[in-house]
């Protein structure tokens, strides 16, 4: 990735894309559906990414990568095929082709960078927007809960699934390396705080990501062949998470969140922590 992208100042999606490409190496092909990352490449006829990139329609990203991967393997090449899709392209519009690719066992890596809204078109609500968050289409706060895409992917039983956060780039780098070393479909879900959409100053991007992990709102783990392992930054955070308010307060999108929504969010965090701890111990 070269300097001079058209990403917003403090964009953590471009930060995580840097680490994904660093982990993947030069023998990589990126498939990017319509999202922020198709914009941050720069202005035609120039591009800021110095590897082959295929920009494609929302619903076709995983199908396209599936074909690419099969074609590369048919001629005996080990080129990494990576889909770098946003949460709209994964949770809402692209879910059918992604589900198909996971079912076929395509050898590729699907990365969902989750900024919890349609950031590129002006912060509209997506399936991944958390409960109570204000977006331009939910001015009074979202009334529905965030879709648990990781559980949906886990149901496909992929060989590798991980969650990461842009505030922990080394962790992300390791997970990308691991995912690409495994044959078969892999999925990484990255939380990328978006300064313009979440309404916080750009210098706090990393801090907000760290708070998300520390409060338990976002848990870093990896699931390799069905075996769950909590990543080290989340281990301490799960034992005694910081109050959720610390994470919500700096963000303008949670200003004026109703006490009821806050309560549900807290309950969900406790449930998730409990579920994952038990799963790691092998209880359920």
């Amino acid at each position: 990735m070269l300097k001079g992208t058209s990403a917003c100042a403090g964009c953590s999606s471009s930060l995580s894309l840097r680490y994904v490409l660093k982990g993947a190496g030069p023998d990589t092909v990126l498939v990017i559906p319509a999202s922020c990352s198709s914009v941050i490449q720069g202005i035609y006829p120039n591009t800021a990414l110095n590897i082959p990139v295929y920009n494609i329609a929302f619903a076709a990203a995983a199908a396209c990568a599936s074909g690419m991967s099969n074609a590369f393997r048919a001629v005996g090449k080990k080129t990494n095929v990576i889909v770098y899709a946003g949460d709209g392209g994964t949770l809402d519009i692209g879910i059918q082709s992604m589900s198909g690719a996971f079912e076929r066992g395509t050898d590729f890596l699907y990365i969902c960078y989750d900024n919890e809204e349609y950031g590129n078109t002006g912060m509209q609500r997506s399936g991944s927007t958390p409960l109570g968050a204000r977006t331009t289409t939910t001015p009074a706060g979202k009334t529905d809960e965030k879709k648990d895409i990781d559980a949906i992917i886990t149901a496909h039983d992929p060989p590798y699934l991980a969650t990461a956060c842009s505030a922990y780039p080394q962790d992300l780098f390791k997970k990308v390396k691991k995912a690409l070393a495994i044959r078969g479909p892999a999925f990484i879900h990255i939380l990328v705080p978006c300064p313009s959409g979440w309404r916080f100053p750009p210098e706090k991007t990393i801090e907000i990501g760290r708070l998300a992990v520390k409060s338990g709102m976002w848990i870093l783990y990896e699931r390799e062949y069905g075996r769950l392992a909590i990543s080290s930054p989340s281990k301490a955070a799960m034992k005694n998470p910081i109050p959720l308010e610390n994470y919500l307060a700096p963000q303008g999108r949670f200003a004026g969140i109703s006490p009821k929504a806050l309560d549900i969010l807290k309950q969900r965090i406790t449930q998730k922590i409990q579920r994952l701890t038990e799963e790691e111990k092998g209880i359920c």
Binding site: L2, K3, G4, N46, T47
Partner: peptide, 10 residues
């Protein structure tokens, strides 16, 4: 086709 360039967005 786009060419990789430093400063693709100026």
């Amino acid at each position: 086709l786009s060419k990789p360039t430093t400063g693709a967005a100026g």
